[in-house]
Nucleic acid binder design. Sequence first.
DNA 1: AATTAGCAGTCGAACTTATCGAGTGCTAAC
DNA 2: GTTAGCACTCGATAAGTTCGACTGCTAATT
Lengths: 342, 342
Amino acid sequence: MSDTRRLQVLRAIVEDYVHTREPVGSKALAERHNLEVSPATIRNDMAHLEEEGLIAAPHTSAGRIPTDQGYRLFVDKITEVRRLSKAERRAMDILAETADDYDSMLEQTVRLLAMLTNQVAVIQHPQHVTARIRHVDIVQMTPQKALVIVILSSGKVEQRMVTLAEAVSEESLHHLGQRLSEQLFNRSSSALPIPVDTLITAVEPDLQPAMAVVANAVQTILESGRVDRIVMAGTANLARSGGDLGPAIGPILEALEEQVVLLRLLHEMQQDQRGLSIRIGQETSHESLQETAVVAAEYTPVENHGTGAKLGVVGPTRMDYGSTMSTVRAMARYLSRILSEG
Amino acid sequence: MSDTRRLQVLRAIVEDYVHTREPVGSKALAERHNLEVSPATIRNDMAHLEEEGLIAAPHTSAGRIPTDQGYRLFVDKITEVRRLSKAERRAMDILAETADDYDSMLEQTVRLLAMLTNQVAVIQHPQHVTARIRHVDIVQMTPQKALVIVILSSGKVEQRMVTLAEAVSEESLHHLGQRLSEQLFNRSSSALPIPVDTLITAVEPDLQPAMAVVANAVQTILESGRVDRIVMAGTANLARSGGDLGPAIGPILEALEEQVVLLRLLHEMQQDQRGLSIRIGQETSHESLQETAVVAAEYTPVENHGTGAKLGVVGPTRMDYGSTMSTVRAMARYLSRILSEG
DNA sequence: AATTAGCAGTCGAACTTATCGAGTGCTAAC
DNA sequence: GTTAGCACTCGATAAGTTCGACTGCTAATT
């Protein structure tokens, strides 16, 4: 028994099924792919594949479809990560030019990823962990309200409104901002907590209450920066991808809106040697995502592995893994590059 | 012929249909609502209503369902805007406490609105038009890159990365920021364009190229602030609301992701005397939204009518208008209040 | 003029039955 | 290890049937 032909058969099944959305039978396989053997032989192979749990038959008299394990093997051993098409490269290059601020950068990228893959795309907001404090600014909004703004080396700008116990002059606020900037400059945002007490005693007594409020706000900002967030695009692709997922689409959307689920999942996923992390069907270990697969890759502005955030797509298990994988990986590399450049 | 009873019949049809999702017949109506007339009489009324185009029968031998015009009449003349339940009030109050920065404020609100109405909720980002420049800040990121930050009186913080032709010291950048702050302070963000030339000539010659870049960035920021944006939540509710919208859900999601469509629609909608704007079915004049209705209301931090942004929900035409309308209106008022407070 | 009872007629939904054919597994021959 | 042949399975499709919820109309009633 030729073991490699079995894999060829599996590959053929996956490819055909992905393409036609219908269970594929031995005859069709023999015709469409030049395996150079008869349908009967293929049937034997299919029987083996079924025993190993790689494919399954919806009904006795129907063709076979890949199981989650089948897709897994396909993804791990069989498929090759494609090269990008010129059009895809072009789209990315164009994107690079129109990017200005941080948030819209991510937003545009996630849209592009959704378009290119025809799937739901997600990007995890980079965490602050490695970012350093670049500047702190305090702006008076009303006599008793002020906006505390923290700018990080990553280019991210965080803000928070605070209410002061009593009115503080604009100059004083500015002064406080300068103090904070000096004291916290280049401090890693993950080195917590900031020395609030020291900061307070370092200013004139009459400003100490204000400083307390403001310093706490900075602290809160840094903490909330560690909370993950996600930007998403292309949810319409879920529906468009056909009655494929059928009525399950509702729960999937719910799970996606429930960002926590996705974040946990992304967090758990380990990158393989190809620079991709993939979860298929039950591997997502989430009820509503049984019929979906997640293809993700890390992107990091610098070479600090482990803290990098992820980006990826969510689609039906029956997806074109080859092209999805390559697009996701390319997009991750691309985003890393852009972010490193500034 | 009692004209008011006809309306009662219409109301009953709308209510029953919204509740059961099934065409409602004369017999069922006579039983469930105490109209005190026989089914035959109701049939006569229904014939009239059908003539007027307010209801229609899917098949000859089926009950009637309201047409878009039927819903419209129902909304305009019949339904009353309900009061909020205690639970709803509570949810809003809790929200008020957890709000800190601008964006997450809107995000939380839109989620709450989606939850309360069980529909897709949208909030239009407030436009800058009435906001004034509060502060401009420039922070060095790398020797040749700087982040330009504009803080508006509304509390919104806008940012943009710029690349300088040649390295500029941190102090010089700061200096430029101060100049811009002074010159542009309290300038309405809609008063355009800013006097770039004047600003440039007001600084030392060696800083003029940098000033040019930076001033242009500010200009761009102010302009982009006039571009509308939308935050959205609860897309899963679209699917959950049952096969109701059926396969049409895909195009609807697409239309929603295409924010432009929604923005145009919201823009066109005029608020009625109750403080609500509603579009039903074809009134949306958008292909994919034929089966949906939009209920929106303006919210404004201050009493500058006309420039206020809108918030609302998108759902199937077959929705509970009464409760949706009240929730949307309450949320608009609530958001106005929060934003006015700071 | 409005209301009502009665009744014939319509038509989709749901159920039944029959047919068709793609696909399988098995056996025996190559 | 491969292949041809064959009996068998079973879902999908089509066609036919029944059932019942409704309607619209007419004629009687208030």
